[in-house]
Simulated assay, not measured.
Amino acid sequence: MYDWNALWHEREAYRTGFDIHHNDANELADALRAKLIHPAAHPEEVAVYENDDRYILAGHAGGLQLLEVLKHGLFDITLRFVTEDEGQNVPLPYVEIHVDNLATEEQAVWRGEARLDDEGRIWVGKRTLDENVLPAMPFDELSFTDNAEFREALSRVWHEDLPQLRPLIEAWFHHGGAAPTHEEPAHYGDADRVQQICDRYAEIVRREQALLSRLFSDDELRLIAGVIAGIHFDSAASCRGVWLAVEARIIDDELDQQFQIDSEALLGKLKNLSYAQEVALIEALSPLQS
């Protein structure tokens, strides 16, 4: 679920000492009144305990130490500029801010239409990028919506990350949202730049797969894996519209009865996937083709 050892080192300043008659990080459940969910396999690794609202990491660093991590603080925020119709009933193009918290099993999305006015100002929702004012993003469905750390992170996304998309947004409007008919082969830069792109791609896929693992049941994933086993995704564009292939196989081969799933519910979920989620789904299930 998380890289616990990385979390242990990243938050070193927040650790506290723990005095107990033994020195076994895996034997603290009673003392902490928490459930051991990840034992430490080696002395240099951390043991992880869980209760209702937090994780407690236990490890050795000059003695036994603890690190408490509140679940509501383990959120991820993803910013996207969306230019293709993903069935969200929002005029194109738009900015999407997706919040996900695996620990609390919550997620929410805010979308704001992007437009360019006659004065060349970029609007997202009811605010311009030049105003330096965060629009109303209630995220009422999140239990941690009023958490100061979460609100500060949202503010950073709006004030620091979103302005970096300005050239991309302006280019979309200046070119009428249309790509050139004939494009030269893309050149992504030197090896370091290509590695950076690959790392970012891998992180996007990882986050989306974490969401998908909760969205689909095991039987639904097996059905989808069986469908895409016979499909070759030769280009990036070919990854769009997985639901069409699934629907065709359900109609022709009655796969929904074979896997005992609700085909209407499955197709509904597939239709609502973003492009990034479809790619993540394909990446996750492609190894099952053999």
Rank of each mutant, 00 (worst) to 15 (best):
R200Q: 06
I204A: 08
L168Q: 11
H187A: 09
E183S: 14
F150Q: 11
L142N: 06
G176E: 05
V227L: 00
C239V: 13
L154V: 01
E220F: 01
T181V: 14
V157K: 07
E160K: 07
R127T: 14
R151W: 02
D161R: 13
A136G: 05
N132C: 07
P138N: 11
I231S: 03
K126S: 06
D219N: 10
P135F: 08
W172S: 00
E184D: 13
A179R: 14
A202D: 15
A191I: 00
L212D: 11
T181P: 02
S235P: 05
I231M: 03
H174P: 01
Y188S: 00
G230Q: 03
D192K: 14
L162F: 04
A202V: 05
L223C: 08
L134S: 05
A171S: 12
H232A: 13
D190A: 10
A237H: 10
A237I: 10
L212P: 08
A186S: 13
S235L: 12
F233D: 15
D199H: 11
A179S: 09
P163I: 09
F150S: 11
A153R: 11
V194T: 04
E183L: 15
D190N: 15
E184W: 13
Y201N: 07
A202T: 11
H187P: 02
S235G: 10
H175E: 03
A237R: 13
V157R: 08
D199K: 11
I224L: 03
V157F: 04
V157A: 12
D140W: 08
H182L: 15
L223Q: 02
L221W: 03
E131H: 03
T181G: 14
T181A: 15
T181H: 12
F144H: 06
E160M: 04
G177H: 07
L129K: 03
L168R: 08
D140M: 09
K126W: 02
L168M: 08
L165A: 12
E220L: 03
F144N: 05
T128H: 10
A210S: 03
